[in-house]
Amino acid sequence: MKTLYLLRHAKSSWDDPTLADHDRPLAARGRQAAPRMAVWLRTEARRPDLVICSSAARAHETWDLVARELQPAPEVDIRRSVYDAGPDQLIAIAQGAPARVDTLMLVGHNPAMEEAAALLAGGGDTKALATMQSKYPTAAVAEFTFELDAWESIGRDTGYLARFVRPKDLAE
C-alpha cells in the first residue's frame, strides 16, 4: 500500500508587487497555518518517507515550517518542475517516486494540486470528498491511500481519499 499527501502551500504574501511569483513569501496567516498543519501531520498522519516540494519560496517556506514538527525531518527534494506542473505532471512526479518510499508528500500549488487530487480520487470518505470538491484552500492536505505496490501504478481514479484537512478544521 502507498500513501500520498498533497499539501498546498500556505497563504502567500502579495505585499511586494515587484516580486516575481516564484519568489513570493508566506503571509503572516500562512506562517500561522503551516505549523498547525504540521502538528496535525505529526500526531494524526503518517510521516512521509520523501517530500517533493516546489522550488517556489512560499512552498519551500511552508515545508520548512512543517518539517520542524516532523523531526527528524523526512528527505526533501526541491523541484522547479512542481512549481510549473499541471495535474497530470504532478501525478507523473508521484509515479516516479522511488520504490522504497511508502509514504510520499508533494508540496505545491493550485490549481494543479486540486485538479490532481480530483483526478486521483476513485473514492473516499464522503465528507472528505465533498469538502475537497468545494474548495482546496491554502495549507490544506489531501491524504490518499492506494492499494498498489508501485508508485508507477497510481493514476486516475486509483486513490482513496482518506482525509482532507484544512487549517480551519484545526484548533488554533
Rank of each mutant, 00 (worst) to 15 (best):
M1I: 14
L6K: 01
L7Q: 12
H9T: 13
H9M: 14
A10T: 03
D16T: 08
P17K: 05
T18F: 13
T18N: 09
T18M: 08
L19T: 11
L19F: 11
A20T: 11
H22R: 11
P35M: 05
R42Q: 03
I52F: 06
I52V: 10
C53T: 02
A56M: 12
A56Y: 04
A57P: 07
A59V: 10
W63T: 00
R68F: 10
R68S: 07
E69W: 14
A73W: 03
R80W: 12
V82E: 02
V82N: 05
A85H: 04
G86V: 08
I93P: 07
I93W: 02
P98C: 10
P98R: 10
A99I: 03
R100L: 14
M105C: 09
G108T: 01
N110H: 13
P111I: 04
A112S: 15
A117D: 03
A118R: 06
L119P: 07
L120N: 02
A121Y: 00
D125C: 05
T126H: 08
A130I: 12
A130W: 05
S134E: 05
K135D: 08
K135C: 11
A139D: 02
V141N: 02
T145Y: 02
E147W: 10
D149E: 13
D149P: 09
D149A: 12
R156G: 10
T158F: 05
G159A: 04
R163E: 09
F164P: 01
F164R: 06
K168Q: 06
D169M: 06
